[in-house]
């Protein structure tokens, strides 16, 4: 389909222009680290403690604990999901 091909051609031209423009900006030192078209809402968060290999939980921590059978209260969610409550709408529900 010709219109689709034209669309593809112009889309690729956009990608190439952007890519070559970025490369030029980088070599001229003008690149500020902000991607073009980076105005959208997005989130960049580095996770803390990701390299923790478990040393915080020393083996001796196990000494005080027992293998208890699960109690009913361990099945009851008590975190911030209580704030969500029944507010979330099921899919398709209005």
């Amino acid at each position: 389909m010709n219109s689709k091909r034209a669309l593809i051609r112009s889309a690729l031209a956009g990608v190439i222009a952007l890519g070559l423009g970025q490369a030029q900006a980088q070599t001229s030192g003008a690149h500020d680290g902000q991607p073009a078209g980076g105005k959208e809402k997005c989130y960049g968060i580095a996770k803390a403690g990701q390299n923790d290999c478990g040393t915080a939980t020393h083996a001796c921590a196990g000494q005080a604990r027992k293998d208890n059978a699960p109690d009913e209260w361990k099945y009851v969610a008590r975190g911030t999901c209580t704030k969500l409550g029944g507010k979330l709408k099921p899919p398709g529900g209005k």
């Binding site: 478990g54 921590a61 196990g62 000494q63």
Partner: peptide, 15 residues
Amino acid sequence: LAIYREAIGANRRGA
């Protein structure tokens, strides 16, 4: 043995 068991469980929970 229980100490090992608990430590392994704690590491998995932590991960």
